[in-house]
């Protein structure tokens, strides 16, 4: 009789042991604020950069420096690229895009444009600039939307080029996608 009782008792004891952790309340500690929060380091195979694409956009995949390409409504192609270091610098890139659009604004005009840009950060905490180049192109000619994010040792650019009207239709989604950029781990 006693043995049977024991036999019953033992598993119960073990079970009780396994779930005996009392929920505790609020903990208090002192934090020295000398370090930035980070993940446990890149895991093999984890993507370097993560983002959240808008639901209506089709993902086309990517390779190498071109991390991902999308097809937005209105058949607008959007590409996300990653450049090492400072990507050659923001101004140099801006000149490059002007070159691709076939326009050559003066230095003063460019300086004013740069100063007018709002400074935001992405979810991952990276400085982000959102550029609408339609002010520099003729009505009806192709123009560009650019997002330029400065990561820890790389630059991310998100670029869509199409007519100004087509770009207006996707601008909100485009900006949301740019803001969602964050580290992969």
């Amino acid at each position: 009789m006693r043995s049977r009782l024991l036999a019953l008792l033992l598993p119960t004891l073990l079970l009780a042991l396994s779930c005996s952790r009392e929920p505790e309340g609020v903990r208090r500690y002192i934090e020295e604020t000398g370090a930035l929060p980070r993940g446990p380091g890149a895991r093999a195979g984890a993507p370097l950069v993560q983002f959240t694409p808008p639901a209506a956009w089709e993902r086309l995949g990517g390779s190498g420096m071109r991390l991902e390409a999308f097809r937005a409504p209105g058949a607008v192609e959007v590409a996300l690229a990653r450049l090492p270091g400072d990507g050659g610098g923001f101004e140099a890139n801006l000149r490059r895009w002007f070159g691709q659009l076939g326009v050559a604004p003066g230095n003063l005009e460019v300086q004013q444009f740069i100063e007018s840009l709002s400074n935001e950060t992405t979810w991952g905490g990276w400085p982000l600039m959102l550029l609408d180049l339609s002010a520099f192109t003729r009505e009806g000619a192709p123009t560009m939307l650019i997002a330029y994010a400065q990561g820890p040792n790389f630059v991310l650019t998100l670029k869509a080029s199409a007519s100004a009207s087509a770009l207006r239709g996707i601008q909100a989604d485009f900006n949301a996608l740019a803001r969602s950029l964050r580290p992969g781990n």
């Binding site: 929920p23 505790e24 309340g25 609020v26 903990r27 208090r28 500690y29 002192i30 934090e31 020295e32 604020t33 000398g34």
Partner: peptide
């Protein structure tokens, strides 16, 4: 000295 702050925290699984 390194800046310090008093933090209160609760585990999300609670």
């Amino acid at each position: 000295l390194p800046e310090k702050r008093a933090v209160e925290a609760i585990d999300t699984d609670r």
